[in-house]
Design a binder for these strands. Sequence first.
DNA 1: CAGAAAATGCCACCGAGTGGCCTTAGCTGT
DNA 2: ACAGCTAAGGCCACTCGGTGGCATTTTCTG
Lengths: 209, 209
Amino acid sequence: MDLRELPLRERKKARTRQALTETALRLFTEKGFDHTTLDELVDAVEVSKRTFFRNFPSKEDVALAADTELWSTFLAEVDAMEVSGLVLDAFRSALRVSLARMDEGWGPRFLATRALCAVTPAVEAHSLRYCDQTTQAAFARMGARTGFDAGDVRLKLVIEVAIAAWRHAALSWTADGGPGGLAGLQRRLDAAFAAIPESIALTGTNATR
Amino acid sequence: MDLRELPLRERKKARTRQALTETALRLFTEKGFDHTTLDELVDAVEVSKRTFFRNFPSKEDVALAADTELWSTFLAEVDAMEVSGLVLDAFRSALRVSLARMDEGWGPRFLATRALCAVTPAVEAHSLRYCDQTTQAAFARMGARTGFDAGDVRLKLVIEVAIAAWRHAALSWTADGGPGGLAGLQRRLDAAFAAIPESIALTGTNATR
DNA sequence: CAGAAAATGCCACCGAGTGGCCTTAGCTGT
DNA sequence: ACAGCTAAGGCCACTCGGTGGCATTTTCTG
């Protein structure tokens, strides 16, 4: 992430990208996603609208920078991870490590992004798609790396379960205002994973109240 | 679903709605979602664009009519279902019953919708959001009906797992071209549910190839 | 310092989606 | 049967997200 060593061109590009994500997140949070036009954003950052769309495929994407950082790190982690034992545990630790790799300031940005998702359907939809694409990519890479069949239901499901645990952890953590920072999020993640066996064995009767 | 008994006004409304969904699915499949303008669609059905947006909140929604039919039936089923034993089994049978409730012609429409999702990111994103909303709604209703805590991780996870099984079944069935019709989809669904216990117990080692 | 290559800015354009307002058509009373 | 009410549809103008084309600036290379 250190960009001091990059050529000037790349540095400038990275700088405008970051300015766009930061300003966008601030404006969207202050005024709402729908009530912030792209013109306002690009005016504030002093770039042209054309430049914006060379950096981000859509208005929604600039709001989800925190998500994409996490997911790309996660995929790299999946590629690198040792699987000796429960596959579910491997994914849990991949998530844990990815979270630890996020740079300082990511936590608050992620929190703001989630808050935005909660009130803006369009952003939520994009976020879910990223999540799903990541799940599928993880499935494909794991399938290629380990010996599992290309369409093995079990591998697919275990990844979906891991991601579901992550999503629940992130959601509940966000709903409570992000208590304890990233360590707090980490704890919720562990709790969610720990609850998985009980979940599928869960029984209940109709409470007639 | 029989609309012979409705007042004339309602009948007409239902008819235009159906004409829109059918024509939309046909046009989108033939020419692609992005290369079909709303003007073409409303011209074909002979309604104004304004009328379209009184029936559907967005262009994507008209393509997902098959999804919404299934999910609303599923939610009704969740409200009605008996839970005595494994909660996971209750959801499996709710999905099974919902599928059986779909009217004739739903199968092909659903298949076409899924094919559309596979090639059109915007439609896919909307579809995922519907799915997620359904999951959350099922969670909220179940939480209210049975005695579980409002934010019980286990209940949330078991629903996510059930939906994940459904999604995998639908995806693999679609990828193969929908073999065996709805009965074939049903079989994939059973197989996916059956694989859940093995999934979370799945172990593997790095295949160094 | 010259020239290639990449990034940016500018402008015109398309299509999705909305608000306002008027007209039409189905539903109510007498 | 008829008059009035109400809901739905049609029409029009407008905003905003997103794209293509082309000229201009800026950085890299020799």
